[in-house]
């Protein structure tokens, strides 16, 4: 029997899962859409992973979760590690590329830059207020132009003269794009311009003041877009690496963390068939109106959070299921 470590990264747009062995080899992996239902997505994810592992005699001994729904899924899967996505991405990337100095990461709803020195994170930034220059912006623009987002990069590469598109803000970019299309710019030029706009926005916003040094690894869903990759290379003037597993890096990182934690907790793929439910209610005890989330497993309350003070604490008869 091989010991397996499962890492799950539940982002706003996509859900990623990776199973590794104790030498960090990927045994199974899957990437699918979250569709606004993190619990459902994880159930689907687990089913796929289970199928991939069939006949390999792998036993999952530890689970790690990351991404914006990490806490919820951590409770659901009885995870031993629940880590923020910044650390998870850094760990994943430095495991595969120990010499990396800069990580560009563009996901569905957020983008981050992580600066690494000697294998340790020394600085990072994450976009705060605006979704300009993220995957969801690109996919909505692709939709507007009638181009599948998967083709976006390839089309961009055919352009000779990328159109200049205002990159400051999604709203401006969009109206600029419409305008440029109406006055007759070619579609591939506009697409290449969009890729450039994403990069300009990235470098000017979260890359501002950061020491961008090669080797650079570019990851996250948008890294699959060769147009954006090329725009990055033009902007920083050196090669930008895209790992074939770049879109799985968060899940991979947290799987590594789960392995390193040494904590082993029972896990079974049966979780996918159990019924999980969450209910939210507003605590009426003061004007803070905390939104309290309760998680139920087969109609039994297993965890709750969201209260700012003890008044809102929900009493749980926590069973020792660890």
């Amino acid at each position: 029997m091989i010991k397996g470590y499962l890492g799950i990264d539940i982002g706003s747009i996509s859900t990623k899962g990776v199973v590794i062995d104790n030498k960090n080899n990927i045994l199974a992996s899957e990437y699918l859409w979250t569709e606004g239902d993190p619990m459902g997505a994880v159930k689907r994810l687990l089913k796929v992973l289970e199928k991939q592992l069939k006949g390999k005699d792998v036993k999952i001994v530890s689970v790690g979760t990351t991404g914006s729904a990490r806490k919820l899924i951590g409770v659901m899967t009885n995870a031993s590690v629940v880590k923020n996505e910044i650390t998870a991405h850094a760990i994943g990337t430095t495991t595969l590329h120990p010499d990396v100095n800069t990580i560009f990461e563009i996901g569905g709803q957020d983008s981050k830059i992580i600066i690494i020195e000697n294998g340790f994170v020394v600085d990072y930034a994450m976009n705060t207020l605006c979704a300009a220059g993220t995957g969801s912006f690109l996919s909505s623009q692709a939709h507007r132009l009638g181009v599948p987002v998967e083709e976006f990069g390839k089309i961009a590469l055919t352009s000779q003269h990328p159109t200049n598109i205002a990159a400051r803000c999604t709203v401006f970019a969009e109206s600029d794009l419409v305008h440029k299309a109406q006055i007759g710019h070619k579609k591939e030029d506009i697409i290449a311009g969009l890729c450039k706009a994403v990069v300009t926005n990235y470098i000017n916003n979260i890359g501002k003041g950061k020491k961008i040094k090669a080797p650079i690894v570019f990851q996250g869903g948008v890294s699959k877009n060769v147009g954006v990759k090329k725009a990055f290379e033009d902007a920083v003037g050196c090669e930008v690496l895209v790992d074939p597993n770049g879109h799985l890096m968060g899940a991979f990182g947290v799987a590594v963390l789960a392995r390193k934690s040494g904590i082993e907790k029972s896990f079974s793929f049966d979780v996918a068939d159990m019924e999980f439910k969450t209910t939210g209610f507003e605590c009426p005890k003061c004007a803070n109106h905390c939104e309290i989330i309760c998680v139920f497993k087969d109609n039994e309350l297993i965890d709750s959070w969201g209260n700012k003070c003890d008044n809102g604490a929900v009493k749980i008869n926590r069973r020792n299921n660890g």
Binding site: N84, I86, V121, V122, D123, Y124
Partner: peptide, 10 residues
């Protein structure tokens, strides 16, 4: 919270 956690890890 995500940023603070990452800050602590760093």
């Amino acid at each position: 919270k995500t940023r603070l956690e990452a800050f602590y890890d760093m």
